[in-house]
Design a protein around this nucleic acid. Structure first.
Lengths: 257, 257
DNA sequence: CCTGCTAACTGGTAATACCAGTTGACCATC
DNA sequence: GATGGTCAACTGGTATTACCAGTTAGCAGG
């Protein structure tokens, strides 16, 4: 087993996460007034400062509205929260993965990827093209060893370079959000994404299209590449949604929760 | 002049915004260690609690990394921040609008809109179709009066319904983020978006395609609709980027900052 | 019934003390 | 010289207390 960093969580982190779950999972309905800070911090057993730090973060995430003099009210996060909330929505009550969120993730990825490749082909400079080909070159031996986990990392690196090359700050930031969401369930998805990850040829085709500044080809190849994993994921979801199936594992190693 | 709500900003809001600007505009480079909290709060003239609330929000936004015992360090927001930061990047130093951000906004919108329409056509239920047609019906008299500002609001309502109909939480949340970014500069963009806003026929075509569950048509019409405004915006950006032009006004009324 | 005051909430700010983890210099040990 | 332990001086984390400031609702007076 590989050693990993100890995750240190502060009191306000705990409070924040607890309240996010309460709201996102619907146990605190929109419009509901939270208890007063002095009361709530006593209930939670933390000092008011820690609670306030958590509440401010909730407000920034668009989950509550704070008003001096008035009370802090729960908002309808479907109308007020931003994309950064996505990673908080992955897990349902009880720790199972919400397949609707996975499906959404795959769909937005499929919508963005072709345009990222297209713009990158239009705007990439020589240095970025070299960087792109370098990532693809590093993929080849890993593919030969069929090391899917490493391929997954290289795939993220590949898209990271493409996104930077697209010279579009919205794509860069959205990619960061989607990547961190994906990272949370990465291990559980290795097998489903296997076919896409093994398609290093498509990655090379994209890199070469970018090298030729051929935006049309880059777009089409990227579209085909991500449709790969997207379809596989849809198939899996169709199967898992049938029974009351848990999502603790799909196939091969990798534990969720 | 229309009266508008007074924006109440707390101390931690001010500190947060000030630090966001410092980081996003590059005056605080990635890797830089912030002064100690006790020192920084004295510099800013606020108490430590207010400063900490701001720092926690910065950490959540992916702009700094806080570590007990160590120092708080500035992160590379291009790698760690999420899409929710986009609205904070609209304004450059001096209050001028960053046209690169506007371009990015238009591009991601153009990438998402067709797929939103497509999914909505596949998944919308009867109630949502009624709602969609209702928005379009409300557009017609406003178009006759050529009231662009109201058309702009109805257009946002229209896309809001479409996004909800797509039954994709990632699209819903991303739409919220993009809408709040767009809202910040809405008035300045009325004239540029005019042609798109006046194309109520396209909105109706999308609504009808959704009503027929014709996802291919919905996608294509939506694609054409948003290309409208996107191209106009590109033309404007090409013109404004030439001289050292300020972005205080484009044409007609509407003051930015 | 309406106006306007007031008291009792609410969150916002502040000062202070102490707990807990990190860092680096220093030193004994191997 | 390299290693590992100790300690002091940082850093952020938590807690308590007090008071300021805005909102709300109820009540007195018109």
């Amino acid at each position: 087993m590989v050693l990993q960093r100890i995750a240190k969580r502060t009191l306000s982190d705990e409070v924040f996460e607890q309240l996010v779950r309460e709201i996102v999972q619907g146990r605190m309905a929109p419009g509901l007034a939270l208890p007063a800070e002095r009361e709530l911090c006593e209930t939670l057993g933390v000092n008011r400062g820690a609670l306030r730090e958590a509440l401010r973060r909730l407000a920034q995430a668009g989950l509550v509205a704070i008003a001096q003099g008035g009370s802090t009210k729960v908002l309808d996060f479907r109308r007020t929260a931003g994309l950064d909330l996505l990673s908080q929505m992955l897990f349902r009550e009880g720790g199972t993965i919400d397949l609707q969120v996975i499906r959404s993730l795959m769909e937005i990825r499929a919508a963005l990827a072709p345009d990222i490749a297209r713009l990158c082909a239009r705007r990439a400079d020589a240095a970025l093209i070299v960087e792109l080909l370098d990532v693809v070159d590093r993929m080849t031996p890993v593919l030969a060893a069929d090391d899917l986990t490493t391929l997954q990392e290289l795939s993220l690196d590949f898209w990271d370079v493409l996104v930077r090359g697209s010279d579009n700050i919205a794509y860069v930031l959205a990619f960061n959000t989607l990547r961190s969401t994906y990272d949370t369930v990465r291990v559980a998805l290795v097998q489903v994404m296997a076919d896409e990850l093994r398609d290093v040829a498509a990655c090379r085709a994209i890199a070469e299209a970018v090298g030729r500044h051929d935006d049309v080809s880059a777009k089409h190849v990227a579209s085909a590449l991500v449709e790969h994993g997207t379809h596989r994921m849809f198939e899996l979801i169709a199967v898992l949604d049938r029974p009351g199936s848990t999502t603790d594992d799909s196939s091969g190693p990798g534990d969720a929760s």
